[in-house]
Simulated assay, not measured.
Amino acid sequence: MGDSCCSGTVDIRAMEARQRRVLMIVLAINIATFVMMLSAAIYSGSSSLLSGSLDNLGDALTYLLSIAVIGASTRAKAKVALLKGLLILGAAIAVAVQIGWRLAHPEVPIFEAIGLAALLNLAFNGICLWLLTPYRHGDVNMASAWECSRNDVFEGIAVLLAAVGVWLFEAGWPDLLIAAALLVMFLRSAWRVLRSAWRSYKTGDA
């Protein structure tokens, strides 16, 4: 009986160590891609790139919070997941403000910079999603981290489409259109994470 308990404790600790290792890798990737995307957004004048960079910053904070509550109670994880949902909602608000500013100050962004940054971002986010996919049906902490990573892949594809649109039409509206689509995605994701976290909080242990 004692050996079984010890074995179970070791298995849990090993699982938590794997989760922590994965989250630290994706945290480092998101910090790097945030800096890259923000630099490219400023250089190119792209709203969709700026949206992506804000998303990566929010995700980096999300992964940092996820690392902090590994091994914590269900309710503690739910509280952090609620905060993650609020971070996603904050990114949506920032994107909405950026879209409004670009509508008032229209310009044609540099599609080469958008495309290159989007390709790099998509490649790295694909790695993050691959690392997190085994945990997508785990506790609310890891499931919400996977949700953020999946959003990043969709975002990367969308920003690539923005670059193609700007190149084809030589106008800024495709970039704004993609930014608006990302805004909708952020709002839907925030709702899913907040709903799941609230349910987990109500049914979780103290």
Rank of each mutant, 00 (worst) to 15 (best):
L54T: 07
L49F: 04
I67N: 06
S46D: 05
A76F: 12
I67G: 08
G52V: 06
G71W: 03
Y63G: 01
G58L: 08
S53P: 03
L49W: 04
A41G: 09
G45V: 07
I42C: 01
L64G: 00
Y43N: 09
A68H: 13
G71H: 06
L65Y: 03
G71N: 09
S73K: 12
L64K: 00
L57M: 10
A41F: 10
Y43T: 11
Y43P: 01
L64E: 00
N56C: 13
A76K: 12
D55Q: 13
V69S: 06
V69C: 09
A76H: 13
A40L: 02
A76D: 14
A40P: 01
S51E: 07
S66G: 15
L64M: 01
A60K: 11
G52I: 06
R75I: 04
A72E: 15
G71Q: 05
S51T: 12
N56Q: 14
D59N: 12
S47Y: 10
A60I: 06
L64I: 00
K77H: 05
I67V: 15
D59R: 08
L57P: 00
A68E: 14
M37T: 12
G45M: 09
L57G: 00
S44E: 11
S44D: 09
N56Y: 06
S39M: 03
S48H: 06
I70L: 13
Y63K: 03
G45D: 10
T74E: 15
V69L: 08
R75T: 07
M37R: 08
Y43L: 07
S53G: 10
A40D: 02
A60W: 07
I42P: 00
L61C: 04
A72V: 03
I70E: 05
L38E: 10
G45Y: 07
I42E: 13
L50A: 13
S53I: 01
V69N: 03
L54E: 13
L61N: 04
K77Y: 06
L50E: 14
T74Q: 15
S53D: 03
D55E: 13
L57D: 05
A40Q: 01
A60G: 12
